Simulated scan of single mutants.
Amino acid sequence: MSNDNEILFEKGKQNDSKLKIERKEGEPTPAFKGASWAALLVGVAAYLIGLFNATMLLNEKGYYFAVLIFGLYSAVSLQKAVRDKDEGIPVTTIYYGISWFALIVAIALMVIGLYNAGSIDLSEKGFYGMAFVLSLFAAITVQKNIRDTQRARERD
């Protein structure tokens, strides 16, 4: 009876090893990478589709587009600066400070723009705010995944 159980266990181990994807230590899982990219694409696409369909003036649309791009860049830049500093990679104080300042300004510009937007319904303001936050978070996560993957592959 125990031999049957051992054989079944061995067969189970063989099947599990065939399904398991080899990944290096420290590398994010493919599911996490995919979820991060999906969140970034959904956030940015929703924001841009909302802007395209909005009944605001072109200069207002340009403002919200510029704030999104500025926010994405500043979030990734800050994530890199924080991580470099944590890992002992030299980061100048001025760059670190500017990274924080840029992200705070991007978020402030979004909040101020939405607060003062008289032509946008409250539900649309919430939509833009949530799409903006999702995009920033996802951009940070995608950049982290890329860096973790690169570092895990360099170890070998």
Rank of each mutant, 00 (worst) to 15 (best):
V42G: 00
V82K: 08
F65Y: 13
M130C: 03
K13D: 08
M110V: 01
F52R: 13
L40M: 13
Q14F: 11
A102R: 00
K144R: 15
T92C: 02
A102H: 03
G88F: 03
V105P: 02
S17R: 15
S123M: 11
L103W: 01
T92I: 01
A31M: 14
E25R: 03
K18T: 07
N3C: 00
S36V: 02
T29I: 00
A138M: 11
I120C: 06
A139W: 07
I107A: 13
E10V: 05
P90E: 14
L19A: 10
L8D: 12
V42H: 03
A102G: 09
D121T: 15
F32T: 09
K61G: 12
G26C: 06
R83W: 02
D86S: 10
D84G: 01
Y73D: 07
A75L: 04
V44E: 07
L103N: 06
F127P: 01
G126W: 02
Y96P: 01
R23A: 03
Y47R: 01
G12A: 13
I104F: 11
I49F: 12
F52K: 15
T55D: 13
E124K: 15
R23I: 12
E124W: 10
A81K: 09
L103H: 05
S77D: 12
T29N: 03
N3V: 08
N59S: 09
A108V: 11
I104K: 10
A81Q: 14
V133G: 01
G71E: 09
Q14I: 07
T55Y: 00
L136H: 04
T93E: 15
F32S: 14
A108M: 09
I94R: 08
L58E: 14
T93Q: 14
A54F: 09
M110E: 14
K20E: 14
V91W: 00
G12Y: 07
A46N: 12
E27P: 03
T93V: 12
G126A: 06
L136D: 02
K24Q: 08
Q79Y: 03
A131W: 06
S135T: 10
K13V: 08
S119M: 08
E60M: 04
K125F: 02
G71P: 04
L134Y: 02
G34K: 03
T55R: 12
N53D: 09
L8C: 00
I112V: 15
G43V: 00
I89R: 05
K20F: 00
S17E: 14
S99K: 02
Y64C: 06
A131V: 04
L68I: 08
K18R: 15
V142K: 11
W37I: 15
Y73K: 10
F9K: 15
T93P: 00
V105S: 09
E60L: 05
F9R: 15
E27N: 06
A117L: 04
A38W: 01
N145Y: 04
L51M: 12
R23M: 09
Y95F: 11
V76P: 05
K20D: 13
V82Y: 00
D86L: 14
L103T: 02
S36Y: 00
D86R: 07
V76T: 13
M130D: 13
G97I: 05
G88V: 09
V82P: 00
E87F: 07
L41I: 07
Y63V: 09
A38R: 07
P28D: 07
K61Y: 03
N3L: 08
L48K: 14
